[in-house]
Design a protein around this nucleic acid. Structure first.
Length: 560
RNA sequence: GCGCCCGUAGCUCAGCUGGAUAGAGCGUCGGACUUCGAAUCCGCAGGCCGCAGGUUCGAAUCCUGCCGGGCGUACCA
């Protein structure tokens, strides 16, 4: 109960309890209490709409209820300056400036741990993301999915979930043969004058490069070998090489997976048939016009879906059903799938699938990531996936750096399309959001360097600092302390709604408050006690910035 | 046709489990460096929250219809 917010929540719950009892209706579920931070300062530091939501239950006028809540409210922690009833029935809380100081203690005793909490109660979560087909290098759109999945995993982990990251490799089916054949033709091109490159194959530049490397390894050994005979080797070789490239690109982007799951493995183990049989026993499978269907309409899908085609070959969806069944069998409480938004039409059947397996619909959360419009200097960069011409994740990371790329990917809700301007991501100016935040951190580091040069030996220790912290009584200082205190709530909200973008928004606001404070006030001055106090505050701001950046997988530089 | 997502400041977007006067960045214009990093800060301007109804004490937020945009709509993966 260290934070002001928690203390008020606690006091408020206690004050409301007697009102609910007096309502003489034990079946009543207490409405969820909301404690918001009002935009306007005259509305206090915190406000609750509790009285208004209680009108429905208690059938009385909200201002009257608010009065009773306040009457029952005991300021056991001695943190409230005053409370008031305002507007239609808000209760506004005005916090004593001194009450905020406890946050410094909280942050500085264990900076990296600050904000961590046990929201997840140790529940096991799997986040599956990227899962791009191993038929070519990752492009920029995959990068956004990668950043989203990775940061979501970090956030959930910080909030007390046990998280695994997984990549599903679509290494089964005909596309791997097509891939192998593509290499075969490019290889033949290197040996002969001209080769007809057939339609529908992977014709990107990366395949030509791969062919050259392959040629250097094997020479002309396969020049006379017919396609059918060479194909298995070519397919395996291409698949492995491309997957390796994907792994390297992700590594450079700061992303590691706990598990790489092969679709082919499901086929080999016969789990797909088994899954279909299990669903058949439950009555969700039927035959129609030579094909085998899954009754997904049972769970709200608009039509039933084919799992085994009339030609006897199972569909991709069938493998996905088996895959998700496998995930649940590994004892995850919650599955998070990160998909490209163009797959949204697939959602309902997948949700139907897990419900048919006896799972709750909520046990699978599907996050849709919208596409990235790549710009350069404000103008769209032409991309055509069909012709195999696209800007790869590697190119972007090489050009703008991991930090800028990750940060920009996360500055929007994932289901909103994103404009990514390569020039802007590189400019080291105020147009670039990541530098704004990193600059604040570097600036703070510099303050501590200067402090040392001037003989301040800043070392956090609660007893020593408590006295001078009382000097922090500027409104701006209270504001900063309060924002620092809101970090855990922001993290929790981000985890609950599975929305990583809340972190960059919080960071920007915190940093903006800091820059403003910094420009108006001097941290190091003639007043030794005051300087010491402000160094405490500065240290806390620096730590929370670093903490949040770390959560985003972005560096917090000491110099820029 | 049907389904999903989206229409908020000139531009790009937050805010959406209903709450007080709708916010930020960029851009425009005007200010602040003898002082810890001006990659910063301060200020001005900018809005029928796509349109029309409905529910409510209260709607950008929920419901319905319409208009406009994106995506999906395979016995492809």
């Amino acid at each position: 109960m260290a934070f002001v917010r928690d203390k008020i929540m606690e006091m408020l719950s206690l004050a409301i309890a007697p009102l609910l009892e007096s309502a003489n209706n034990p079946s009543l579920i207490p409405p969820s209490i909301e404690l918001t931070t009002p935009k306007a300062t005259q509305h206090g530091d915190y406000a609750t709409n509790a009285a208004m939501t209680l009108t429905r239950v208690l059938k009385r006028n909200p201002r009257e209820i608010a009065g009773e809540i306040i009457a029952h409210l005991e300021d056991t922690h001695g943190i409230l300056e005053r409370t008031e009833i305002a507007g239609p029935g808000f209760i506004n809380f005005f916090v004593k400036p001194q009450a905020w100081l406890g946050i410094l203690h909280e942050i500085l005793t264990d900076p990296l741990h600050y904000g961590r909490q046990n929201l997840g109660l140790g529940k096991r979560v799997q986040v599956e993301f990227v899962s791009a087909n191993p038929t070519g290098p990752l492009h920029i759109g995959h990068g956004r999915g990668a950043a989203t999945g990775d940061v979501l995993a970090r956030i959930l982990s910080a909030c007390g979930y046990l998280v695994d990251r997984e990549y599903y490799i679509n290494d089964a089916g005909n596309q791997m043969n097509t891939l192998g054949a593509s290499l075969y033709y490019r290889y033949q091109e290197l040996l002969k004058e001209s080769v007809e490159f057939p339609e529908g194959h992977y014709q990107g530049e990366y395949m030509k490069e791969l062919a050259r490397e392959f040629f250097e390894e094997v020479g002309e050994r396969y020049s006379k070998v017919p396609l059918e005979e060479a194909l298995p080797h070519f397919s395996r070789y291409t698949g492995e090489r491309i997957l390796k490239g994907i792994q390297e690109d992700l590594d450079a982007f700061g992303i590691r997976f706990d598990n790489w799951f092969s679709e082919q493995g499901l086929h080999d183990a016969g789990v797909i048939e088994k899954t279909i049989e299990e669903l058949r026993e439950k009555g969700y499978i039927y035959e129609h016009e030579g094909a085998t269907w899954f009754r997904s309409t049972e769970f709200g899908d608009e039509k039933d879906r084919v799992v085994v085609r009339a030609n006897g070959i199972s569909t991709y969806f069938a493998a996905d059903l088996a895959y998700h069944k496998n995930k649940f069998s590994r004892n995850y409480d919650l599955l998070v799938d990160i998909w490209g938004a163009d797959h949204h039409g697939y959602m309902e059947r997948m949700l139907a699938g897990i419900q048919a397996m006896g799972r709750n619909r909520r046990d699978l959360q599907i996050i849709l990531v919208q596409l990235v419009n790549l710009l350069r200097g404000g103008k769209p960069v032409a991309m055509s996936t069909r012709a195999g011409e696209f800007v790869t994740l590697k190119e972007v990371v090489d050009e703008v750096g991991k930090d800028a790329a990750r940060y920009i990917f996360l500055t929007r809700r994932s289901d909103s399309p994103l404009d990514f301007d390569l020039d802007l991501a590189k400019t080291q100016s105020n147009e670039n959001p990541v530098f704004y935040v990193q600059y604040a951190h570097a600036r703070l580091c510099r303050v501590f360097e200067v402090a040392r040069e001037r003989g301040f030996s800043f070392q956090w220790s609660p007893l020593q600092m408590e006295e001078c912290m009382q000097r922090l009584n500027l409104p701006q200082e209270a504001m900063l302390l309060k924002m620092l205190g809101e970090y855990p709530a922001t993290l929790a909200s981000s985890a609950r709604s599975l929305e990583p973008h809340q972190i960059p928004y919080y960071l920007h606001e915190l940093v903006s408050n800091f820059h403003s404070y910094y420009n108006q006030n001097r941290i190091l001055g003639d007043d030794f006690q005051l300087s010491k106090a402000r160094l405490c505050l500065a240290a806390a701001v620096k730590e929370v910035i670093a903490n949040a950046l770390h959560l985003l997988g972005v560096d917090a530089p000491h110099r820029m």
